[in-house]
């Protein structure tokens, strides 16, 4: 897999006191839309020794992108919006179907499997990274569902 390497300073906000985050974003994919919305997924790994957090995401394809967590309680699945997604030093955070995911709202047009969209990830300390995400049929995303996430 091709890894884009982007060197970014820590900016005026400064890096977290303990060290410097080094982030890899991969396996980025967006779902063909069903209705007015869609979802996108990725895996973010922080190889560095400083914490970071995903604070915003933009898509060329939609008015808004929200970070959502799907909670599974008592046999019910429910999405809960969240402002930020922590990416602690040394950890891998996966955005998965049925888990934390990106919800693409207010689509400018249909998302067809085989096309691509641009997603810009904004991190608190590291800054922005824009990636191209292939669009796939939702059926192809079933393999990304973490098994037994529901505990039932």
């Amino acid at each position: 897999m091709c890894l884009a390497v982007l060197v970014v300073g820590c900016g005026l906000a400064g890096c977290s006191s303990s060290g410097t985050p080094e982030l890899t974003v991969e396996d980025v994919v967006a779902s063909a839309n069903a209705g007015d919305l869609s979802a996108a997924y990725a895996a973010i790994t922080n190889h560095g020794d400083g914490d970071d957090a995903l604070v915003a995401v933009r898509c060329s394809c939609s008015e808004r992108v929200s970070i959502h967590h799907t909670e599974h309680h008592d046999g019910l699945s429910k999405m809960v919006p969240t402002d930020r997604l922590e990416v602690p030093a040394g950890e891998r955070v996966a955005l998965t179907p049925g888990g934390t995911h990106l919800m693409l709202e207010g689509l400018h047009g249909p998302l067809a499997a085989g096309d691509e969209v641009e997603l810009t990830f904004e991190f608190e300390h590291t800054g922005e990274l824009t990636l191209s995400a292939p669009i796939v049929e939702p059926a192809e995303l079933a393999d990304r569902v973490e098994p037994n996430h529901e505990g039932a």
């Binding site: 091709c2 060197v7 990274l129 191209s132």
Partner: peptide
């Protein structure tokens, strides 16, 4: 800046090499 599927950030003063290892 755009690339298909994956991207890496590396801050200049990073000691990530050691951590990654």
């Amino acid at each position: 800046m755009s690339s298909p599927g994956a991207g890496t950030f590396r801050a200049p003063a990073s000691t990530a090499g050691e951590v990654t290892e």
